[in-house]
Structures are given as C-alpha cells and as structure tokens.
Amino acid sequence: MDALIEIDNLSKHFGELVAVDNVTFSVARGEVVGFLGPNGAGKSTTMKMVTGFLTPSAGKISVCGHSVADNPLAAKTAIGYLPEGAPAYPEMTPLGFLRFIADVRGMGASLREERIREVVSKVHLEGVLHQPIDTLSKGFKRRVGLAQAILHDPKVLILDEPTDGLDPNQKHEVRSLIQEMASDKAILLSTHILEEVDAVCTRAMIINKGRVVQDGTPAELQSRSKLHNAVTIRMAADKAASARNDLQTLNGVAGIQELTGSADQNGSVSFQVLASNGQSIINQVGVRMREKQWDVEEMHVEKARLDDVFRSLTSSDVSETTVSGGVS
C-alpha cells in the first residue's frame, strides 16, 4: 500500500492544553478513514495540522511524500480540504468562488471551466451558481465547500464533518460521492455520525483526549461491543428464569443480561444472551429453543452499535485504562 498521508508522533499544545498527543497513523490510497471522537478530542486540530493551517508542536506530517513543514506548497497542492463549517467568501457566487479557487490552484481557463462543470454536476450546484453564497442554505454552502475541495481532483481529501447540516438525502449523496472517489484517493474525514462510518469508511479511528484509542475496520470496532451478536429474547416471565439458566450453559454464550423494566402487564420479559467474543450464537439459541419448545414472543440478533463502542472508549471513566498510545 502506498501511504499518501503519513503522520508521525504528532502533538499539538495550546498553552497547557494538550489537544493532540503523540498521534501516529497513515492513510493509504483507496482508504477512507473515519475520524471519530467527542467534541474537543483533537480531530479538527489534527486535520488543521495536516493541511498546514496549524504548525505542530512536535512530530512530522508528510502528504504524498512531501513534508508539510518543509515543502508546504507541494503538500497543499496535493490536498483538497473542506474545513469545519465549510467557510467560503459570503459575497461571492459559487461560480466566482470556484473560479477563484481554480485560479489560485493554477488551472488554465479551459481546464478550469471543464472542472467546474464537472464538480458542479457532481455536487448539484447548478441551480445556485449565480447566487451569493451568503444567501444559500446550509446544505448548499456545505456542497460549495465540497466542490472547492475536489475541484483539482486531489490525491488526498481531508473533510471535516462533510455531512454536518445536510438532510438525509443530501447526506446519502455526499456519501455516494465519497465512495465514488475513494478508489484512487486517500480520504480522511471526521464525523459525529457513527452510521456514516459504516456507510463509507474502510477504517475507523477513535480519538479521545488527543490520542488514538482505537484503529480498525468498522466491523472490528463493532466486535468490540459486548452486545455484538447478542440475542434478545422476549417470553413469558414464569418461563424466562429456567430458559435463562438453560441458555447460560450453551457453548459460546458469555452470559445473560436481564433487561430491567421490560416486563409488561401480559407477564412477558426480555433478556439478552450475550455472545462471547462476538461470535454468532443465534443458531445454537434457536436449536435449543425448538428442543425445549419455549413460547417465544420475540427474538432478534443485536447488531452491535458503534455508539456503544464509541461511548465505552471515550467516556472519561474508562478512557484512562483503554488508552494505549499511538497506533501504527
């Protein structure tokens, strides 16, 4: 794999505050890396350093082999960047704005118009090309920012919350766009929306208090949830106790978790059969159920939620023990 973004022991201090703490990772061509973390975790700060807007306190960054510190112009040429909030000059029209960006990026007039036509149709800006950016809705502004970032077909795309403020349809469009472009680019995007990681990312990195606490495929992340592949069963309360004891002994079952407050006036309760190591246990559970002929009202497999993993990795009480420094 050829790594287009390489980050080596990167740190950033703002006075006493350590915003980014010794982070090391790389992003290869074809990868879409989702940068996750609570507000203030250091996602944007890291991106700002990669794009050359902030100078790191320590560490090295190289983009397409160019050191951001020593050869910023070459690095910036290779990067397309959507800053947080998609800033753009409010008095300009999207067309004027894109022409300015093309001009700064050294495109000739014919290439410029061709590229503008292409990205405008990609992000659907046709209807608002001549309207001041000031007057556009949040969704359009975001798309103008996105158009600006992909205008020069960069090898490296850095997108800070690309779908923030978009409606579900627009989110879907932006995600398809990112997937379309992914094959020949290295893409680093930050997001709060965990479903987005599932939808577009080939790799997810969770960052907390300036450190990478988890780095892996979305599936790997999910498997860290203790609810992964758990089976939730709802049945009559009087039968439930014996069923729970029985299921406890099954191979691959890590334990049973009662769901408090799940009892209703019909006398049914729910409980969850937890899988050890996130393996699939629905088959064993189903077989046992038929053998014993329990009357089950409802039964389904829990899809591990990234939220749980995210919370367990980033909520303050556990983070100290899970933090293991940089990930290579």
């Binding site: 700002k48 794009t51 050359g52 807007f53 112009l73 070459a74 910036k76 040429t77 990067i79 960047y81 800053p83 947080e84 909030g85 800033p87 753009a88 000059y89 409010p90 960006i101 700064v104 990026r105 050294g106 600006q148």
Partner: peptide, 14 residues
C-alpha cells in the same frame, strides 16, 4: 472571524 482564513492558508500559496 468567518473562518475563510483556514481556506486561504491551506491553498497552495505562500
């Protein structure tokens, strides 16, 4: 104030 400085400073100009 408007954040466009981030855009300007990350364009390939000195």
């Amino acid at each position: 104030k408007s954040g466009t400085i981030e855009l300007l400073m990350t364009l390939p100009i000195t």
